[in-house]
């Protein structure tokens, strides 16, 4: 195994269509990129936006949702609910600085093993182009400003002297 960065994709597949299609891709011995971790849910309507945010925040580079085609949902309405949430969530993720390409929704029926292969390969390539999302690393980076200051405070110096970062200077402070 090389240490080169590999895209890490979390996929939420519905039990009735897309997961079955992924099974079909498997028994058909289709080869596709191994970067996707599939989580089976009963319906794409069960994909809580919290799951998607959580996956990204815990280190996924992209999230793929697979559900039944319109008019084909086992629960009649689930895929529409998923589509509506997806539309706004994607816009919101862009507002939060996350590229639209990192969230993808595809309708894949139980017969479309080939489509599973194509979509996963495409998304893997997209994410490879985008590079790592790295939210856990970003969280650690943000909190460095606090760790440094905390160490300074714990040393009991804060009330007496400004810490090195805030040492007296004639430079404008906030530039």
């Amino acid at each position: 195994m090389s240490n080169e960065w590999q895209p890490r994709i979390v996929a939420f597949f519905c039990n009735w269509c897309t997961y079955t299609a992924a099974d079909l891709a498997g028994v058909s011995r289709l080869k596709y990129a191994s970067n996707t971790r599939v989580i089976r849910l009963m319906c794409s309507g069960r994909v809580d936006p919290q799951f998607i945010l959580d996956a990204l925040a815990k280190g996924a580079d992209a999230v793929l949702i697979g559900g039944c085609h319109p008019f084909d949902c086992h629960y009649a309405e689930g895929n529409y609910k998923c589509l509506r949430r997806f539309q706004l969530l994607k816009r919101m993720l862009m507002d939060m600085g996350i590229e639209a390409g990192r969230l993808r929704l595809e309708w894949i029926s139980a017969a479309e093993g080939e489509k599973v292969k194509r979509v996963i390969n495409e998304l893997t390539e997209t994410v490879r182009q985008l590079g790592p999302l790295g939210i856990p690393q970003q969280f650690a980076e943000w909190d460095k400003e606090m760790e440094q200051f905390a160490a300074h405070v714990e040393a009991g110096e804060a009330l007496k002297t400004p810490c090195a970062e805030h040492a007296p200077t004639q430079e404008p402070a906030h530039v």
Binding site: G45, D48, P49, Q50, I52, L53, D54, P70, Y80, K81, L83, R84, R85, Q87, L88, L89, M92
Partner: peptide
Amino acid sequence: RDQGAKILSSICSNLAAKEEDEID
């Protein structure tokens, strides 16, 4: 866990529209 994601989920799933354009 995430209040914004929850209300987004609740409101969006209750849209009448079923087509992407209408939803947007």
